[in-house]
Design a binder for these strands. Structure first.
Lengths: 192, 192
DNA sequence: GTCTATATCAAGATAGAC
DNA sequence: GTCTATCTTGATATAGAC
């Protein structure tokens, strides 16, 4: 948003990157300020200048996660022509784009770190999820299909986040195609 | 399985129950042996007699989670008549039964605790997930619908587990119905 | 804005009594 | 099989120099 000028990352961003990486590598519960500081290339004192407590760091990780998904969604909205179940297409496409790129594991792990330390830190996520559900239910031409599509992508995201996803790239492509069909065509009325 | 005679719970079971409850209440990262011991009604020494390390406790939590879902699935299989996309129906029904009863949050949190402490402890879950995907892909009449249904339930489970689920009981009932239709009828061929 | 040094505390694990 | 007491480590956070 701001510090993105020519690859020069601010300390804050370097710290957030380091923390996200570490959660994926060593587990949410082992995320220590020492490890984050070392990975980010500064001292613990320097880290604590940027984030006065571990909780504030976790809070920032969650906020960044929420913001990145949201801005990905809005970027897609700008490109997208009005279409059936638009909101569900935006949600699923935004999340899938990050899942397939492999970026999701790195970003979503902020949820694990925050949840591990203090479940209340997930409040911003809870809020987004609630809003998403309401939007899907009120604006979709086919709310059931939209809900299924969104939940399926959340299922995938959850597996990627915990690093238990058995899906190959081909599986993912096929899944994306199936979700597209579901949102475009809906659930069949006639028996198969 | 064994100690289930007339409500007389073994220490092991009381400890596992206590740990599962605590993760939901205070967060995976705050799960301490002291807290578990107190909740289970014994001393830390007594706890460490039953589980010689914290890791062995977490391992047992994961194994219990895997076993409970698996035996729920097999119980359903015994009742079910052969039908379209059977394996997907069993998976989704087993998981949904636990989600709707509210038991899921209590049980699945073992995943959070294990993942938090040591992501490798999720290996049994990884194995089950891989097996499930293979079974769905090879035995389903409609693999795409089966995969979508399974992932959707996993998405719901994930939200329940992190306590960020915005769904009402009515929402869940409707979702169950939609999943049933998807597995029975498939994705539509014609446009809506 | 970043560093070092240190205070403080919580948590896992051990030893041995009962 | 369960208890109490204790050891030891590792992690957050503070204080103050540069």
């Amino acid at each position: 948003m701001f510090g993105c000028v020519r690859g020069r990352k601010s300390s804050r961003e370097k710290i957030l990157d380091a923390a996200a990486e570490l959660v994926g590598e060593i587990g949410a519960g082992r995320l220590t300020l020492d490890a984050v500081a070392e990975r980010a290339g500064l001292s613990k004192g320097g880290l604590l200048y940027n984030f006065p407590s571990k909780e504030s760091l976790l809070q920032a990780m969650i906020q960044r996660l929420v913001d990145e998904v949201s801005s990905e969604k809005e970027a897609l909205r700008a490109q997208m022509t009005p279409s059936r179940n638009l909101e569900a297409k935006l949600c699923t496409a935004a999340l899938l784009k990050m899942c397939v790129g492999g970026k999701m594991k790195e970003i979503a792990t902020g949820m694990l770190a925050a949840s591990s330390e203090n479940p209340r830190l997930l409040e911003p996520v809870r809020h987004v999820v609630k809003d998403t559900l309401e939007k899907l239910q009120t604006t979709s031409e086919d709310p059931d299909a939209s809900l299924l599509a969104w939940l399926a992508v959340e299922g995938l995201r959850s597996m990627e986040m915990h690093d238990i996803s058995p899906f190959t790239d081909a599986d993912r492509e096929r899944l994306i195609e199936a979700i597209g069909r579901l949102l475009e065509k809906g659930i069949a009325e006639q028996a198969a």
